[in-house]
Design a protein around this nucleic acid. Structure first.
Length: 468
RNA sequence: CGGGGAGUGGCGCAGUGGUAGCGCACCUGCUUUGGGGGCAGGCGGUCGCGGGUUCAAAUCCCGCCUCCCCGACCA
């Protein structure tokens, strides 16, 4: 591996994170505090995530739509808990078109309110249910301490909003999204194991009846909330008069859900798989699964590399050809390593003479010569192996850094560099004492690891961790 | 908002009153290219902003602004 171009993780993890974001050319700060410029490579990863999520969202029956960025301020005030939760971080436009606005306009921090106004117009009959919408957009939350990808003032996300005829149906849908869209994408695409569970009331979405979450463990043992799915009950429906006529002709408030994941997932990817050499992108997710490097363009190596790249692309892989031979080989190798491209195929005159190319896997920094004849099949199998290996390694690390505890004090010690699993009853009354050090209850699970429907179910276990 | 730190070429930094510098990056040429090569030449800065002291201010004084890091809030 190359000499260290990044601050080592063990020396200063936050610094390492910033180094990766910069050196892998993922993003940088925007001119306004907390804003983010997402660079092409970072955006390519986001586009891949969008694609994988969008396919699953649609498979779950939701359709995409788009609602406005600007929302009348009065909408925010219609749901009591919602306004209390979001007011402090909402950006408000009071002046436009050269004069003060009659009613200030907020920039959406989330869209439950405006979408409910339209739900209430559209929804009339139980026959129209469930009503399943999703939108891809940007939202703004004036956060106190921004951090690229993890917590930016403006961020990109998808937000799903649905109406159902019954509580059971709404709840089942919120849980379906949690499992079939979020957990599936995180595990199968991002190769990141997540704990799925119920949020305690203190961590619930403002205005929700229940919030469920996917919690990932980062390389430093801290937790990151990677996605949430909420059961809104009838809270917003009541506030916005979102009603429908039932089969028996009665007026009933819609049962609703909302759910979202954001560009924070890129932060999770960095901190979940990154190492001292930079990012490591799982093959299923990677914008570039393979990069074919021309070591030097002599003796037909340039043409051979182009041909190899075309063949790999022809076998269905996402391939990049790096023929910038005016830049030194070492520099380019380091560059791709920083960007975490899963497999590199190095083509130079030396190996070409023997009908070979050098294949390097990013996850373990291992090199081997491979015959050109079977290259595509070899690389395909290698990518599968890397995908599985990254998930296995992340799962192992997560499990090794998860301890059982009986009391809050034990849990506090145990969560110093990971998760502590403790009986919910042992900490339930002491949530206020967690306080310092960023320690919090990440989620609740049943003893068998399944997802609870209520914080009042018996024998629940709580996962405690320091969190981002 | 509390606690720390910093504003000087694109990036990272040095510079305690006397002609604004270094490393990296960038450009040109030659040479090199199998893990961030070498040599030579070159481009690039009204030193965060406003005032003040002084013959003279990046440097001293006053005021302001911004950014970063650590906490409280959060996808």
């Amino acid at each position: 591996m190359a000499k260290s171009v990044l601050t080592p993780q063990s020396e200063d993890f936050p610094r390492w994170y910033q180094d990766v974001v910069a050196k892998a050319e993922l993003a940088e700060n925007g001119p306004v505090r907390g804003t983010m410029v997402i660079r092409p490579y970072g955006y390519a990863i986001w586009e891949r995530l969008q694609r994988e999520l969008d396919d699953r969202i649609k498979a779950a029956g939701a359709k995409n739509a788009y609602f406005p960025l600007f929302i009348p301020e009065s909408y925010l005030h219609k749901e009591a808990e919602h306004v209390e939760g979001f007011s402090p971080e909402v950006a408000v436009v009071t002046h436009a078109g050269g004069e003060d606005l009659a009613e200030p306009v907020i920039i959406r921090p989330t869209s439950e309110t405006v979408i409910n106004v339209y739900f209430s117009k559209w929804l009339q009959s139980y026959r129209e249910l469930p009503l399943l919408l999703n939108q891809w957009c940007n939202v703004v939350r004036w956060e106190l301490r921004p951090r690229l990808f993890l917590r930016t003032t403006e961020f990109l996300w998808q937000e799903g909003h649905t109406c159902h005829a019954s509580l059971d149906d709404a709840r089942a849908y919120a849980l379906r999204i949690l499992a079939d869209v979020y957990e599936a994408t995180m595990v199968d695409v991002m190769a990141m194991p997540v704990l799925t569970g119920l949020k305690p009331d203190s961590e619930k979405f403002a205005g929700a009846a229940n919030s469920w979450t996917c919690e990932g463990m980062m390389g430093d043992g801290k937790a990151l909330q990677m996605g949430t799915s909420h059961l809104l009950g009838q809270n917003f429906a009541r506030a916005f008069e979102t009603t429908f006529l039932t089969e028996t002709g009665e007026t009933e408030y819609a049962w609703q859900t909302s759910w979202g994941v954001s560009t924070r997932l890129i932060g999770a990817l960095i901190m979940g798989h990154g190492d001292d050499g930079g990012l490591r992108v799982p093959p299923v997710l990677a914008p570039n699964q393979v990069v074919v490097l021309v070591v030097r363009a002599e003796d037909g190596a340039g043409d051979a590399a182009a041909k190899i790249a075309a063949e790999l692309a022809g076998s269905g892989l996402r391939v990049e050809l790096d023929d910038r031979v005016d830049t030194s080989f070492g520099r380019r190798a380091v560059e791709w390593e920083l960007k975490g491209v899963p497999v590199r195929v190095e083509v130079g005159p030396r190996d070409l003479k023997d009908g070979q190319a050098v294949v390097v896997r990013r996850d373990r920094a291992e090199k081997e010569p491979v015959a050109l004849a079977g290259l595509a099949a070899h690389v395909g199998a290698l990518l599968d192996d890397i995908q599985a290996g990254l998930l296995a390694a992340a799962t192992r690390r997560r499990d090794e850094h998860t301890v059982d505890a009986a009391t809050l004090d034990e849990a506090r010690d145990g969560s110093a560099d990971g998760f502590a699993r403790v009986p919910w009853d042992a900490v339930r009354e002491h949530e206020g004492d967690l306080g310092d050090g960023g320690l919090s209850i990440r989620c609740l699970q049943r003893a068998d690891g399944s997802v609870p429907l209520s914080v009042d179910e018996p024998d629940l276990v709580a996962y405690l961790a320091r969190a981002y």
